[in-house]
Write a protein that binds this DNA or RNA. Structure first.
Lengths: 244, 244
DNA sequence: AGTTCAATTTATGGATCCAATGTCAAGAGT
DNA sequence: ACTCTTGACATTGGATCCATAAATTGAACT
């Protein structure tokens, strides 16, 4: 995992500077440390992160395509205001895309190996909650399991455009499926949220197995909102964001 | 196009190397001069285009986000092989995304100005077919009208993630809504296809107006296949080059 | 003869340097 | 006093150079 210390690392870092700059800027924007409309200069960011201008330049172009920053003409870039409505919309888009994946899978049926993969994945999730206890290790386990389930669903759907669209869509904070265990990581008491997410997974696989495509799609659409059930997330968003 | 060192050229015909590389690579891929799966090296492309490696690097990253090239690990990039199955999938994705936009609009209802915009747009489409004759000018008119309708739908939905995801998705040939009038442009006899597409638009707007969200979504999903109705397109695809 | 390990080569990623462009400010003229 | 013009500065975009990592090929050993 990445440490969230910007300039704390010594000169030798195992993570590549390019990825480091991208995830740093993402965190800064998501946490509101870069306020909306605030200008982001290449040189300033490069010096602040202790890297050269080059990874900053590429990172800003990447973040521009992802919509997290906007260009200010020849005046550099600026952090874009991320509203709760936009996160709401991104979750909605993820719902229909993963819903389409579930629909396709239910419609064409699972092969024997695919069904085995799904059952193996679900059993791994089951093992996490079978322990009853829920330490930090279990949270990491759930993070991996959750990502594996969603990746398996999208991958098995046989439509690469779904995965491509999801990759772009998931760059907004709280929009990705990883937000389930990632953004709640400071609250170990959210046991029920993660358990209900696991139950959602089981229900989706059951619907796929019995070839109920509409049910599978509907379940998957509703499951997209698992990360923000409890709606406290949006309070955190609107708190970190001034006026847009 | 070619610059002969004009001292004070009034128009900004100065082509920047970055844009030049991007449009050159797009043309090469579209025209098949870069065959699918063919490896694209930075140095080779830079020397071929007479620029440095830097604009090629940024251009390849941009084209990667657009989905036209894929990474070959640390072995550079490759022109993406576009199969008929991928186009099928991209159309499917466009269907669910625009279906989501229609669903949202029907659920929250149209404002007076939005309804007026939709009616104005539809009447423009109606005017094209009211003439009966269908020359090349009418084809251009339909192209503009079709794009305007889809843009209006996505824009009015109030979910910017839908438009962002569609922008990426529409990079594949025949996946965009523009493919309706663009890729059929050599067949003026396809009058019925375009007319049925216009009827689809009208039906979607009617469903939205009567607040039938499920019908609006379903109609919009089915409408995504309007460009490939008749399935001759896929034969042209499997003939390895769509447009020339 | 096949497989594995190591070394070399090649290509991408990063850093620094240079050029071009746009903006801001200050001064002068009307 | 206001506006226009010009010059200086800051910032992005491009090019070249260097390091690192991966792949391929060759040789040696089993």
């Amino acid at each position: 995992m990445d440490e969230h210390a910007p300039a704390d690392h010594p000169t030798k870092t195992r993570i590549k500077p390019g990825q480091y700059v991208i995830i740093s800027l993402r965190r800064m924007i998501a946490e509101g440390r870069l306020k909306p409309g605030e200008r982001i200069g290449e040189v300033a960011t490069a010096e602040a992160l202790g890297v050269s201008r080059m990874p900053v330049r590429t990172a800003l172009r990447t973040l521009e395509t992802e919509g997290l920053v906007v260009r200010l003409g020849a005046r550099g870039y600026a952090a874009r205001a991320i509203t709760a409505s936009e996160i709401h919309g991104a979750i909605e888009v993820r719902g229909v895309l993963e819903g389409l994946a579930a629909h396709r899978l239910a419609r064409r049926g699972l092969t024997a190996s695919e069904e085995r993969e799904f059952r193996t994945c679900l059993s791994q999730g089951e093992a996490i909650f079978a322990d009853g206890a829920f330490g930090n290790g279990a949270l990491d386990l759930f993070y991996t399991y959750n990502l594996a389930f969603h990746a398996l669903l999208v991958d098995a759907s046989g439509n690469p455009s779904i995965g491509a669209a999801l990759t772009r869509n998931n760059q907004l904070p709280f929009a990705s499926a990883a937000a389930l265990a990632l953004d709640w990581s400071d609250r170990p008491s959210e046991y029920e949220h993660l358990l209900s997410a696991h139950r959602d997974h089981c229900n989706v696989v059951d619907a796929i197995a019995r070839r109920d495509d509409d049910a599978a799609e509907r379940l998957m659409r509703e499951h997209a909102w698992a990360a923000v059930r409890g709606e406290k997330v949006f309070e955190r968003i609107s708190a970190s964001r001034p006026a847009g």
